[in-house]
């Protein structure tokens, strides 16, 4: 009977209902992470394996992208600077742009695509084929084994990947600068490090931790709550990427506001 009245309600309130139950669900999912992370079993082996997987999966693409972003960005910035005869500022400009924004953002977006989709697909296919149920009936906590380990792994790995991307982007930039402006490597990197402050590096690491956490938790959530059937697997993978990317941009905006406030305050 309860269902019948539910059926008769207008679509808009039904969708609103769905939205808020979804939100509450997601919130409970995140909350559970912070409840379960403190208690054994800690599954260190699985965390390590996941860290390795994440690095291994995203390294080739991140290396390539980081390097190319460095070259292209340097090349594109040169004309504007040379109008003022200020091409000697290139290293500082690139350094600030890469460390503050491009490194973390590019890395996070690539990781969302590569890692997020594979986590979403993997967990939802485990759900569909009842592997998660199988864990539950043998008294193993699937949330702990699957979700907590993966979220820890993405959270820890992202800052490392970001630093790696930063480095490669700066290398790419150096190659371009050294060819055009004949600057030595040491001069280039002295300028690079003079341009950035401790706050830049620190906030970039904190931001990356949040990006990593977001990718992990969103993908696990989408996988864990996927609908039945093989179609659900594709949807979960897709939704993991879209949702992660969306949240990453929001977080980027927020962090911009916060860091600016700190810098000026």
């Amino acid at each position: 009977m309860a269902e019948k009245t539910y059926e008769r309600r207008p679509t808009i309130t039904k969708n609103l209902d769905k939205f808020f139950t979804g939100l509450a669900d997601a919130f409970a999912f995140v909350k559970r992470f912070f409840q379960e992370i403190w208690f054994p079993p800690y599954e260190f082996k699985e965390i390590l394996r996941q860290c390795y997987e994440i690095g291994y999966r995203s390294l080739p693409l991140i290396s390539l992208t980081g390097f190319i972003v460095g070259i292209v960005f340097t090349n594109q910035s040169r004309p504007s600077l040379s109008e003022f005869g200020a091409t000697s500022w290139l290293p500082s400009l690139i350094s600030v742009a890469v460390v503050r924004a491009m490194g973390p953002l590019v890395t996070a977006l690539i990781a969302a695509g590569k890692v997020g989709s594979s986590i979403g697909a993997e967990i939802s296919s485990m759900k569909v084929t009842e592997q998660i149920d199988a864990m539950e009936v043998s008294a193993i906590n699937p949330y702990k084994y699957l979700v907590v380990t993966r979220v820890i792994a993405t959270t820890l790995m992202l800052p490392i990947l970001v630093m790696y991307t930063d480095f490669l982007a700066l290398m790419g930039s150096y190659i371009n600068v050294s060819q055009n402006e004949l600057v030595s490597m040491s001069t280039f990197f002295v300028q690079v490090f003079e341009a950035i402050s401790f706050l830049d590096i620190f906030s970039s690491i904190i931001k990356s931790l949040f990006f990593g956490f977001t990718i992990g938790i969103v993908s696990c959530y989408k996988g864990y709550n996927s609908t039945k059937g093989t179609e659900g697997v594709g949807k979960a993978a897709n939704a993991s990427v879209v949702m992660s990317m969306f949240l990453i941009f929001i977080e980027e905006l927020l962090s911009l506001q916060i860091v600016n406030a700190i810098r000026n305050g």
């Binding site: 084929t129 009842e130 592997q131 149920d133 199988a134 539950e136 009936v137 043998s138 008294a139």
Partner: peptide
């Protein structure tokens, strides 16, 4: 649950 064995329809 440890005292119950569950063999899944698609093996899982």
């Amino acid at each position: 649950r440890l005292k119950i064995g569950f063999s899944f329809q698609n093996s899982a």
